[in-house]
Design a protein around this nucleic acid. Structure first.
Lengths: 245, 245
DNA sequence: GACCGTCGTTGATATGAGTCAATGCGCCGG
DNA sequence: CCGGCGCATTGACTCATATCAACGACGGTC
């Protein structure tokens, strides 16, 4: 595992030849809307930062002055109720763009669950850049539209599915994480804890644990280690999940 | 109540001087990104249609060839599980833009709960228009970002709030429906049935009914008729709802 | 190598919301 | 005016999931 740092760590604040041109996440992200020859303009306003696992790098309610683009690692996004109840609204990895809201405060928090590297853009600066690259704005709209569809799917899960169905949906989603459309891995790792899964699915840790144990007992999955899952019967899992998702 | 029609009814397919210029919903919608002098171009691709209460005018899973813009009335958006369980993902009124998803099928269904009037745009035609009016694309992005924030708020509700808290949140949301930011009505109507509310909040009809009765018994609200609510104690409702929402 | 904290699992019990069922109310059609 | 239908309310009971509690497994530290 990468070094854990006490606080977000700035890398190359203004150094490095052309970080955006060599960015691993570029092909996954909205940045690919900017042509090679203009990448220096993007790089000029990007502040590359790292956050160790467990670090919160966006705080719900804080002044929203930046956009973020994850380039490596995984983070959870969540909202809290005053008494501490938590809802994880998503897990995000390389290529994910954060902070779209129009409001002047962040509507959610973001915490690294694996060491995360991200680019931070001042809102005003990125907005100015967007004016010159309408294609990037188009890509942002696509991204937002897709997230909206995913959010509606999650509402269906949270409002109407049973614990078994939620876990089945979640496992299928994870098995497709980062795969080309229509493909799924049979074996995959879960970077998040049971508590994170519970907060994502609107359940408790105990129910997540029991339900996974039961799915394993029924032969639908194997749990090779706490964070390593094998899908044994994808068809049954899909039936449980409620269709095509 | 307006006439009930057997099927969506086309109005002025190509007639009427300049329907967009006189549209009541224009100021509420993304259409206001198009300057007056170009409104004819918008009008040329808009097909104005009416749907009576109860009519489904978007079907989840169908080929998605159009965008929609509601200009009057109220509709519910929902998703279904194979066994018929329903999740209402939102109630939409004048000014609401629908169909943003990139996918080639609709991700949700839409059904009028009050007679609805809407403009229908072929995707290809509106996309072409968008290329000439980047401001409209900007507005769409804003709209999508705001909906995303609302969706996350709804996930918090569905995943973590109790029935009482859900109803409190819902009533506050409705009391602000269509009001300028920061304002709320004390008395307002609910155009949807208890079943719709239940499907929106991830509850059953009975729980919605019992919970409303209890909130009334506690003096937080009055129920003047089945569809007419008065907020008696907005502060208490907000505490229940979990803060500032 | 013993200690300790975090995370996960499992069991016993509690409870909020769901289910099933009866009743009431308003509206429309004949 | 009556009957029927859809929607809402209310009550009795059930059940899925939460809560409370104990224990086990792993990993890091001194």
């Amino acid at each position: 595992m990468a070094t854990r740092l006490a606080r977000p760590h700035l890398l190359d604040p203004h150094g490095a030849a052309d970080p955006c041109a060599t960015c691993d996440a570029r092909s996954l992200s909205v940045c690919n809307a900017i042509p090679d020859r203009d990448l220096a303009r993007l790089a000029a306003i990007a502040v590359v930062t790292e956050a160790p696992a467990g670090r919160c790098f966006i705080d719900e309610g804080e002044k929203a002055d930046s956009f973020f683009n994850i380039t490596a690692g995984t983070a959870k996004l969540f909202k809290l109720l005053p008494d501490g109840r938590r809802q994880v609204t998503g897990f995000v990895g390389a290529g994910h763009f954060l902070g779209l809201a129009v409001s002047d405060t962040y509507a959610f928090s973001a915490e690294a669950i694996e060491p995360v590297r991200y680019c931070r853009f001042r809102r005003a600066k990125l907005r100015a850049l967007l004016d010159d690259f309408p294609l990037m704005e188009k890509r942002l709209l696509e991204v937002a539209a897709n997230e909206l569809v995913a959010a509606q799917e999650q509402m269906l899960l949270l409002g109407r599915k049973t614990a078994r169905e939620r876990l089945a949906s979640f496992l299928l989603l994870q098995s497709r994480q980062g795969m080309p459309c229509g493909h799924a891995r049979q074996r995959f790792g879960l970077p998040m804890t049971r508590g994170d899964i519970a907060d994502y699915l609107g359940l408790t840790i105990e129910t997540v644990s029991r339900t996974l144990t039961r799915l394993r007992g029924e032969g639908l999955i194997d749990i090779e280690s706490q964070s390593e899952v094998v899908v044994r019967d994808p068809g049954a899992l899909e039936d449980l999940a409620g269709g095509l998702y």
